[in-house]
Simulated assay, not measured.
Amino acid sequence: MSGFLKLGIRPAFIDALKENGIIEPTPIQQRAIPVLLNGKDAIAKAQTGTGKTIAFVLPLLETIHPEKNEIQALIITPTRELAIQLTSEVKKMIVHAADIKVLAVYGGQDVIAQMKKLEGTVHIVIGTPGRLLDHVRRGTIQLSSVSKLVLDEADQMMMAGFLGEVEEIINCTSPSRQMMLFSATMPEPIQSLAARFMHEPEMIEVRSPQLTVEDIEQMLIETTDRKKQATLCKLINNSHPSMAIVFCRTKRRASKLNESLKAQGYITEALHGDLSQAKREEVMENFRKGKIHLLIATDVAARGLDVEGVSHVFNYDIPHDVESYIHRIGRTGRAGQKGIAVTLVTPKDDMYLKKIEKSGISMEKMRSASSKHNKK
């Protein structure tokens, strides 16, 4: 008997899962699906790669009434990439339930075309806060019938400054809604949001088996803001990464570093929220194919980024919390491969470094960027 059947998922969706190579539920799915099918609010702390999307999509699909011509479920997500990715996942799940209609609503799309689609039958809407709110204010989307609300990557929505928009959208949904909040980290504003809008939520926490760091050699190198870029270039020149991701704190820093590295002859592209959707897809495709050696990314842009063969991760800017650190370095050392993660640390980063080290993570200190760090 299928593990999903035991959890209460109907055969039509189990068949769709099998067709996508998913046979047994992951720990987050085993824990979240029964809670959500019971109609309870839930806060799930789970990283990318744990199977969290299916953990909330399946219970949503189980409760949709296709005969009702109204929006019954709303999934809010911080970026266009995630909205597209989630919509694609949902469509895979409903191949044998074609009467369920799903629509992605995000910026960068023609708003008039979206308005026309919203006039038709839509049961599930997956969207970014800005564009959703735009439709709410125009009166082109009706959310009062929404009884299932998911906030996906809630911490990233907060980091991107969407908290106000998210609260406004929540207030438009049914007061008796069931709410599900999925987040890799639980900063105070997220806890506060949960306290205000959720009813006795069940807490679910699952560690991702894909984000163990045993196969990743972790190093740190002390530098200064002035020498940081030269240090990174030395590291790249000495380690010759086949594919590497360089993490920057902001879009502006990612753009600036990308332009500078390009001018020096490196084969590099930036990945951040200011790029058009077409450009982001092109960058990711080129990176996967190995046409780009260095991807200069922000945390938000790299959420859900799953690319095989990344040999190195460089933290150009140190992450501000342990979960972000693990998420970043987890882009390498995947599928049994060894990976290398190097974090550049300036004197003012001491507080963040101590926070990471206090969690039990230890990074080997490199004497200089020229020192050999790819151990034999």
Rank of each mutant, 00 (worst) to 15 (best):
I245A: 09
K365Q: 08
F314M: 06
G120T: 07
N286F: 00
A160Y: 01
E285Y: 03
Q264C: 00
R280N: 01
D306Y: 03
R80S: 02
G161R: 08
P129F: 14
T48H: 03
T173D: 13
L61F: 09
T250P: 05
T298N: 09
E222R: 13
S362Y: 15
T50N: 01
L305C: 06
M366Y: 03
L60Y: 07
G139R: 03
P209L: 11
E281C: 00
L151I: 11
I329Y: 07
K6T: 09
D317H: 12
I221E: 01
G21H: 12
K92I: 02
D225S: 10
E168G: 00
L132W: 13
I221M: 08
S255P: 00
A301P: 05
R10T: 14
V111M: 13
L220Q: 04
E285M: 02
F314E: 06
F4P: 11
F314G: 08
I236T: 04
Q191Y: 02
R288V: 05
I326G: 08
I216A: 05
N69F: 10
V310G: 04
S371C: 06
E67T: 15
S362F: 15
K40N: 11
V307Q: 04
D15M: 12
D110C: 08
S192L: 12
E89I: 07
M115H: 09
S359N: 07
K338W: 06
Q178K: 15
D134H: 14
T268R: 02
G309A: 08
L17H: 12
G164I: 11
S239D: 01
E364W: 03
E357T: 09
G333H: 06
D306Q: 08
G304H: 01
D225I: 03
N237L: 09
L257H: 02
K18Y: 15
Q229L: 04
V206Q: 06
T87M: 06
T140K: 05
L118H: 08
L261E: 01
G164K: 13
S260I: 05
C248D: 13
E70N: 15
R10K: 15
H199L: 09
D274F: 02
M115V: 10
L82G: 07
G120C: 01
S144R: 14
P78A: 11
K91D: 07
L257F: 02
I94S: 08
F13A: 10
I71H: 11
I326F: 02
I296G: 04
A302S: 15
I267C: 07
Y106W: 03
L86M: 14
I326V: 15
K45G: 03
D152K: 09
K348Q: 06
K289M: 08
L5W: 00
G290Q: 05
K52T: 03
M284C: 02
L295C: 08
I318G: 03
E81I: 05
T298P: 04
A154W: 12
V35R: 02
E281R: 00
H373V: 14
A44Y: 01
G3V: 12
A335C: 08
V122W: 13
E188K: 11
R131D: 04
S88Q: 14
Q114I: 09
E214P: 00
T77G: 11
R138E: 07
D110N: 15
